[in-house]
Amino acid sequence: MARALRDSGALDELFERIEDGSVPLTGSDGLLPALLKDSLEAGLRAELDDHLGYAKGEPTTAARGNARNGTTAKTVD
């Protein structure tokens, strides 16, 4: 997939912005940490969908005892 993106030219602008320094690769605002975070979150959402047996936002039935009930921000001390 990466080769197809590169060959199509879809990544050219991104590579130019990385080379001129307007897109950092590392650090708190870097491209690599953001890609890793988004990839892990997508995988975890897919795993949760598979585990619960339905996708997020899909209506639940009363028979399902294991339903999503929202999320809250967590603070770790």
Results as ranks from 00 to 15, higher is better:
Ser28Glu: 08
Ala46Ser: 14
Leu52Thr: 10
Thr71His: 09
Arg6Gly: 10
Asn66Gln: 03
Ala4Glu: 05
Glu19Arg: 06
Leu14His: 11
Gly53Met: 13
Arg68Asn: 07
Leu32Asn: 03
Leu35Met: 14
Leu48Phe: 05
Gly53Arg: 15
Leu44Asp: 04
Gly27Pro: 00
Asp77Ile: 13
Leu52Asn: 08
Ala67Asp: 01
Ala34Met: 11
Gly57Ile: 11
Ala4Ile: 03
Ala10Gly: 06
Ile18Arg: 07
Arg64Gly: 02
Lys56Cys: 08
Asp50Phe: 11
Thr75Asp: 12
Leu52Trp: 03
Leu32Val: 15
Leu35Lys: 05
Ala73Ile: 11
Tyr54Thr: 06
Leu25Ala: 07
Ala62His: 00
His51Asn: 00
Thr61Gly: 06
His51Asp: 06
Ala46Val: 10
Val23Cys: 09
Arg17Leu: 15
Ala10Pro: 02
Ser8Val: 01
Leu32Gln: 07
Leu32Cys: 04
Asp49Lys: 09
Thr60Ile: 06
Thr61Asn: 00
Ala67Trp: 03
Ile18Leu: 14
Ala4Asp: 12
Arg17Ser: 13
Leu35Pro: 04
Pro33Met: 09
Gly30Phe: 08
Ala67Phe: 00
Lys37Ser: 07
Thr75Leu: 15
Ala63Arg: 04
Ile18Trp: 09
Val23Asn: 04
Leu48Val: 15
Gly70Pro: 05
Gly65Val: 00
Ser28Arg: 14
Ala62Asn: 00
Glu41Lys: 07
Gly53Gln: 11
Val23Ala: 10
Ala46Ile: 04
Gly65Thr: 04
Leu5Val: 00
Asp12Met: 11
Ala34Ile: 02
Arg6Gln: 10
Leu44Gly: 01
Ala42Cys: 01
Glu13Pro: 01
Arg3Thr: 04
Lys74Ile: 15
Ala42Val: 01
Asp49Pro: 04
Gly30His: 04
Glu19Asn: 02
Leu11Trp: 10
Leu52Ile: 13
Arg6Met: 09
Thr60Leu: 00
Asn69Phe: 06
Pro33Glu: 05
Glu19Ile: 02
Leu48His: 11
Gly21Ser: 12
Leu32Glu: 08
Asp49Thr: 15
Thr75Cys: 05
Ala63Gln: 06
Gly27Tyr: 01
Glu16Asp: 14
Ser8Asp: 08
Gly65Leu: 03
Ser39Phe: 05
Arg64Leu: 10
Lys56Trp: 09
